[in-house]
Design a protein around this nucleic acid. Structure first.
Lengths: 127, 127
DNA sequence: GATTGACATGCATGAGTATGCATGTAAGCA
DNA sequence: TGCTTACATGCATACTCATGCATGTCAATC
C-alpha cells in the first residue's frame, strides 16, 4: 500500500476553499465543457465554430460558455456579429493540462480500478 | 483582451479523454469530497475520524469514499476493525494542490467574475 | 427601417447524484 | 456464541444541472 503521508504540504483545506475548488472543478466535470476548453486551448474561436468543433448545438454551447464565463475560465469579446471566446488566462490552460496529464498518468499506471462502465452514457447527450 | 493562443501546446482533446477528465474531475466537483481529500492529504485516517474531521455523517463519508475509490483517488486497507484511507498516490495530491493553487491564483487576481451567489447552499448539506 | 446572421436567454424535461435513514456485514471481545 | 464496534450498502428523497426547443437581442447589410 503506497499511502502518501504529509510529506511536505499538509495545509488543512478550509470549508470555504473546498467549496471554491468544487465550484471551479465542477466546470471540468462535464465532458462537453472539457471539450470546449480543449478546443479553446488550441486558440480562440467563435461560438458557431465551437459548436461545430465539439459537435453540440449552439444553444448548448452558449449555456456552457455562460457557466465557464461565470467561473472566470473563459472570456468572450464581440467581433462584429461574432463573439470570440478564449481561455481567460494561461492558468486555465495549465489546469486543463494538469487534468489531462493526470489521466495520462492513470493510463500509464495501467489504471487503478478503471470502472467497468462503458461510460458511453455518462451525462452525455449523444445526439 | 488577454487571450491565450496556442502558444506551445495545442493538442486536440479527444472525446474519450474529455470524458475521462470529466469523470475524474467530477470527484473534485463536490466540496464534501474535496474536504475528504484535503483531510487525507494531511495523512491517512479511518472513516470515523474522517467523518468527524469533515463534519459529515459516517454513511455519507462512506458513500463518497466509495466514489473516490472507484475513481482510484483513494485507497483503503483494513486495520483491525478500522479501515484506514489514504490518497492513492502522490499524483492525486498534486492534482488537489493544483486546484488549490488555482483558486489561490483567482483570489490573488482579484477574482474574475466571482459569482454573486453566496454559495452557502451549493450542493452542500450544512447539518 | 426591414432583413438576415450570430449569440444569448427562458422554459421545460430528463437524468445523475448527494444526503439521510435503516440495515447488513466484517472484526474484535467477553 | 452473543455482543459491540466500525464500515459498507440499500433505498428513498430532493436537488442540481445538461440538453433541446423556441424565442429574444445585438449587429451588419441592403
Amino acid at each position: 500500500m503506497g499511502f502518501v503521508h504529509g510529506v511536505s504540504s499538509n495545509t488543512p483545506v478550509s470549508v470555504e476553499d473546498a467549496r471554491h475548488v468544487a465550484r471551479v472543478m465542477s466546470a471540468l466535470a462535464t465532458s462537453s465543457r472539457v471539450r470546449i476548453l480543449g478546443r479553446l486551448r488550441e486558440g480562440p474561436c467563435a461560438v458557431g465554430e465551437l459548436a461545430l468543433a465539439v459537435e453540440m448545438e449552439q444553444p448548448a454551447v452558449s449555456h456552457q460558455l455562460r457557466i465557464l464565463r461565470d467561473l472566470g475560465l473563459v472570456e468572450g469579446s464581440r467581433k462584429g456579429r461574432h463573439v470570440i471566446y478564449g481561455l481567460y488566462d494561461s492558468h486555465v490552460a495549465t489546469l486543463l493540462e494538469e487534468a489531462l496529464r493526470h489521466i495520462e498518468h492513470l493510463r500509464a499506471a495501467g489504471g487503478p480500478p478503471q470502472p467497468a462502465i462503458d461510460d458511453t452514457a455518462t451525462s452525455e447527450g449523444v445526439t
